[in-house]
């Protein structure tokens, strides 16, 4: 019951968050220099054409009127019509969302698969050569821009060795696994470097904790100590970090989806910004806000499972 109350409270707290996001993004996109009418009609359009487009899109209305329209439409589930795509914003987002969610989930899975075992190896060999090698390699990964990692992977694994396709998103589950492996790996290499550093430090800290020493003194098997005591406690801070990383990961999709020609929300956001597509930028920002809020909520719930001291109420 306490858990349910906590979830409802968190969901209720999302309402002012989304309202704030709506106000900020509404004002921010309108502060951008550049005219959406010009972005639609192109440089060759006449002044009369631009005036007609502004009129048609309601851009001549006072800001408050525009915001009220946007706000009331969102409450009714209508994110407006994309200037760029000439279709409903909701429709475009629903079409692109699965690809980005798949990419993000795939990237997070790969990050954990890479970072988890290596963090253990590094922590258990603290100060010795495996630890040094792992930390050095990840430090290099961390210091390289995402697009550069992407281009290196593309050049060698796709164009040269032809193990993977250069771009695109594939059909079906296996098709997506195949096509989105390189973009997911690009994001994962960066994210896993952060997770590995954090998890390694947490494992080292927990290994030195008195309850672990006590467990060892009791003669518990090493596997049980590592699995039940060390991993569970070390994961608490890592789960928080992972939740925060997913926010970064979303922004990383802007670059990754462009480099790998993946038609997801990140690439759509870039196109929308360059085209000054106000409704689409607003719709996408709200979508990202919802996704990140859900991830944060799930993070908190998962943390409470790992650590009974964290009372949901």
């Amino acid at each position: 019951m306490a858990g349910l109350q906590y979830i409802l409270k968190r969901l209720a707290l999302m309402i002012p968050t989304f309202l704030l996001v709506m106000i900020i993004i509404f004002l921010l996109v309108r502060m951008l220099p550049g005219d959406p009418a010009l972005a639609i009609a192109g440089d060759k359009a006449s002044d009369a054409d631009l005036a007609a487009i502004r009129n048609r899109l309601g851009l001549n209305e006072p800001l408050l009127v525009q915001f009220w329209l946007f706000f009331t439409n969102v409450l009714q589930g209508d994110l407006g019509r994309s200037i760029l795509m000439r279709t409903s914003v909701m429709g475009v987002i629903i079409e692109r969302l699965p690809t980005t969610v798949f990419l993000a989930a795939f990237a997070v899975s790969l990050s954990l698969l890479i970072a988890g075992p290596l963090a253990f190896v590094a922590a258990l060999n603290r100060g010795r050569w495996p630890d040094t090698v792992i930390r050095t390699v990840f430090q290099v990964g961390l210091s390289m821009p995402v697009f550069y990692i992407g281009l290196i992977l593309l050049t060698f694994l796709a164009a040269h060795l032809r193990w993977f396709p250069v771009g695109g998103h594939g059909d079906g589950f296996t098709g997506q696994l195949y096509y989105l492996f390189l973009p997911s790996m690009t994001v994962a290499l960066y994210t896993s470097a952060i997770i590995m550093r954090n998890l390694r430090a947490a494992i080292i800290e927990v290994l030195d904790a008195e309850y672990v020493q006590f467990a060892r003194a009791k003669g518990l098997p090493n596997r049980l100590i590592l699995g039940r005591h060390v991993l569970r406690n070390a994961l608490i801070s890592t789960v928080t970090l992972l939740g925060l990383s997913i926010g970064n990961l979303m922004s990383g999709t802007l670059v990754t989806e462009t480099v790998f020609a993946v038609p997801g929300l990140g690439r759509l956001m870039l196109e929308a910004i360059f085209a000054r597509d106000y409704p689409l930028i607003q719709g996408l920002t709200l979508t990202f806000a919802v996704l990140v809020s859900i991830v944060f909520l799930l993070t908190d719930l998962f943390q409470s499972l790992l650590d009974p001291r964290m009372r949901l109420s």
Binding site: L151, L154, A159, R162, V166, G167, T258, V259, A261
Partner: peptide
């Protein structure tokens, strides 16, 4: 549709 120049060219080379 491949907006990135380098990726477009890699596609051709591959």
């Amino acid at each position: 549709i491949i907006p990135d120049d380098a990726t477009r060219i890699l596609k051709l080379q591959a």
